[in-house]
Design a protein around this nucleic acid. Structure first.
Lengths: 206, 206, 206, 206
DNA sequence: TATGAATGAGTATTCATTCAT
DNA sequence: CATGAATGAATACTCATTCAT
C-alpha cells in the first residue's frame, strides 16, 4: 500500500543528477526547465512533481552532488599511514575528484556565487567545507604531535588556507586549462607547501 | 570641431564602472539594463549609445575593472628588495586588492565562469592572469639565481599553483567570511609556502 | 449480474453535488479538478469515469442543482388558496430558497454568464426559467379571472418582469449584503408590486 | 518638460476601454493579454506599461466603465417634473443604458461575482450602487411629501428592492433574450410597481 | 546625443487529461 | 472501477533592444 517510496526518491535523485549536468553545462539562469526535462528524458511537467520550482531543483541538485562529493573528498587514514601521508593522499584525491566532476564543479561555483549574494547561508555546502577544513586541521595537529609538522603552525587557519587552494586551482584550470595540468599544479602545490620555497628559513615572515 | 573624444571615452568608462558595481552586486543575469542606467543616472537608451548590447557592456565593464586591477596586482620591485621580499609584498598587495574590490570580484568570477562555458577565450582576462603568473615565475627564477629559492623548483608551474591560491582564498572568504580572516589566510599561506609545513625535508614527494 | 446501475448514478450525482459546492465557492475557472476530487474524497482520475471533461462536470453539476431548485421553486397551490396567496407564498419560498443556496447560486449566475457567451442555449436552465415564468403567468391569469388582479395586465410579460426581480435581488444581496436584508427586500418588493407605489392610479404610464 | 500626462492618461483609458470590450466578450479568465493587446492594436508588453497585471487591468477597465455608467444612470430631475415622472424617466434611461452596454454589462456582472468571492469590497462599484439606491430613495421620499406616493412606504428599503430589478432583468434578457424584450419588461415592471397588481388593496401583505 | 515608450521573443509554471497499474 | 504519476499545451509577465522625438 505504501506507495513506492524508494522509486520516488530514486526518481527524484535521477532528475537532480540530470539537473547537475545541465546546470553545470549552461549555468543556472541559462538553463531552461525543458533542458533538464530533456536531459532526464521526461516531460516538463514531471519535474514539478518532484521539485516545487527551478530554485528548489537547484537545491536538490546541489544536495545530490554534495552526497557524491562528500564521499569523494573526505580523507580516510589508512592504517600505519602518517598524517602527512594521509594529507598527501587527500590532496591527490581531491584534485582527481574535482577534475572528475569538472562540469558539475562549475555548478558548485555558481551555486556559491549565487548564494553569497543573498543572506541565506550556503546550507549544506557550508557543512562540507567545514568538515573538509576540520579534517585537514586534524591532520596538521596530528602531524605536529608526531613531530612531522612544525609546532608553531596554527592548525585551523593553515587548514583554511590549504583547502582554499583547491578551489582556486580548479577555477584556473577550468578557465585557462592550459598550459599547466591540474595534476602538475597539485604536485607543485604539495612541494611548495611541504618543503617550502625558501632555502633557509631566515626569511622574514611575509 | 574635434569631437569631444575624451568626453565620450570618459562617459563610456563611467558607465562601465557603474555596470561593474551592479553586475557584482546582482550578477550578470539578474542585472537589468535599467539597473545599470539608474546606477549611472542616465536613461536606459543611452547605454546603447556606448555599448552594443548587454554582453558588450559586460566586456566593457570587465575591461574597466581589469585596468584597475592590473595596476593594483602586478608587482613593482623596489630598489634593493630581494625577490622573496617582492613576492611577499605582492602577496599582501593582492590580498588587500581583492578584499578591496570584494563585490567587483564576484563579477570577475562570474565572468570567468560565463566565458569558460563558451569556446571564446577569456579575452583580456587571460592577459592579466598570464602576466601575473609570469611575474611570479620571474620572481621565483630570480630567487633561484640569488640562492634564496630552492633550485629544483619549476618556476612557471609553481607560479601557476601559487597564483591559483588567491582566487580560492577570496572565494572561500566571500562565501564563508568567518571565522578566518582573509589576512590571516594570506599570512598562513605565506608561511606554509615559504618555510614549508614539514620539519625535515626527508618527506617523500607526494 | 445486473451492473450496479443505481450505485453508478448515485456516485455520479454525489460527485456533481461536490462540484456544485466547489464551483460556487471558487468559480468555474478557478476550480481545479483536484479540488472537486478532494471535496468528493475520491481520486482525480475517478471524476473522468463519470464525466468526460471539466465542462461536462459543470453541466452535470448544474443538472443536479436544477433538480434541487426546481422542486424548491415551483409553486404548489394549496387547496382553497387564492392565486395572489399562492404567488405570495411562492415569493417567500423563492427568496428563502435562494438564500439557502447562496453559494451554489453563484454557480448558477456564472453558468448563465458562461453560456450566454456561446450560441449554445442555456439548456436545462431555460426549462426551469420558462416553467417558473409560466407558473407565475398562470397565477396572474387565474387572478385576473378571479377578479383579484387588474384585467389589463399582460400576464406573460408581467411574469417575466416579476421573476427577473429575484435574480437581481439575490445578486445585490450577494455582492452588497448590507444594509438591507434579503427578506426585507422581498417584503418591499411584494408591497410595491401588489399595491403599487402611487396613491391614485391617474399616473401616466411610464 | 512635464511628460505628456494627458496623452498617458488617455492611452491608459483607451486600453482600459479595449479591455472592457474583450472582458465582456470572453470573460475575465478566458481573456488573454494578447487579446486585449490586439483589440487595442498595441503590443502585449505595452499593456504592462500602464497596468501592473491582468487584475489591475480589470480594475482599470471597471473604473473606465463606471465613469461611463455613472453618467448614464444617475437621474437628473428636469424642472417642473414630478418625482414619479423623474423616476419613470430614470427607469427608461437605465433600461436603455444597460441594453446599450449589453456586452460590457457582462463584465460588470462577472466583476461583481469575482469580487463577492473575496473579502475585498466591491470598491468603486459599491459607490455607484449606493448612489443609485439613494437617488431612488430620495425620489420616493419626495413623492411621499408631494402626496404622490403612499406615505407608509419605507423609502430606502423599497429603493433597494426597486433598483435590484434592473440587474435581474438585464440578466434574464442576456441569457434568454426572447421572447420578451427588455423594453417590454421595463414597461411591465413600471406598471406593476406604480399601480400594483391587485385590484383592491385589501390584500394581506406578503 | 539622450531619452523612455513600445515591442515581442522567451520562460517558469499550472492544470486538464490520459493511461498503466 | 479507482487511482495518481506523467504529460505538454497554454499563458502571464519580463526585459533587452529599437527608434521616434
Amino acid at each position: 500500500m505504501a506507495p513506492k517510496v524508494l522509486d520516488r526518491d530514486e526518481k527524484r535523485r535521477y532528475i537532480a543528477l540530470a539537473a547537475v549536468t545541465v546546470f553545470g553545462d549552461k549555468g543556472f539562469e541559462q538553463t531552461r526547465m525543458i533542458d533538464v526535462a530533456m536531459a532526464a528524458e521526461i516531460g516538463k511537467g514531471t519535474i514539478y512533481e518532484y521539485f516545487d520550482s527551478k530554485e528548489a531543483l537547484m537545491e536538490g541538485a546541489l544536495e545530490a552532488l554534495l552526497a557524491h562529493m562528500t564521499e569523494a573528498l573526505l580523507p580516510t587514514a589508512l592504517p600505519g599511514e602518517s598524517p602527512l601521508e594521509t594529507l598527501a593522499a587527500m590532496t591527490q584525491k581531491t584534485v582527481a575528484a574535482m577534475k572528475h566532476v569538472r562540469d558539475a564543479y562549475r555548478f558548485f561555483l555558481e551555486y556559491m556565487l549565487l548564494k553569497s549574494r543573498k543572506d541565506e547561508g550556503l546550507g549544506p555546502f557550508t557543512a562540507l567545507l567545514t568538515s573538509y577544513r576540520q579534517a585537514i586541521a586534524d591532520l596538521i595537529e596530528a602531524g605536529k604531535q608526531r613531530g612531522e609538522i612544525r609546532p608553531d603552525i596554527d592548525a585551523y587557519e593553515t587548514a583554511a588556507a590549504f583547502s582554499a587552494w583547491f578551489d582556486g586551482a580548479i577555477f584556473h584550470w577550468m578557465v585557462v586549462p592550459e598550459p599547466v595540468s591540474l595534476e602538475a599544479m597539485g604536485q607543485r602545490f604539495w612541494e611548495m607547501v611541504i618543503r617550502g620555497l625558501a632555502i633557509d628559513s631566515g626569511v622574514d615572515k611575509k
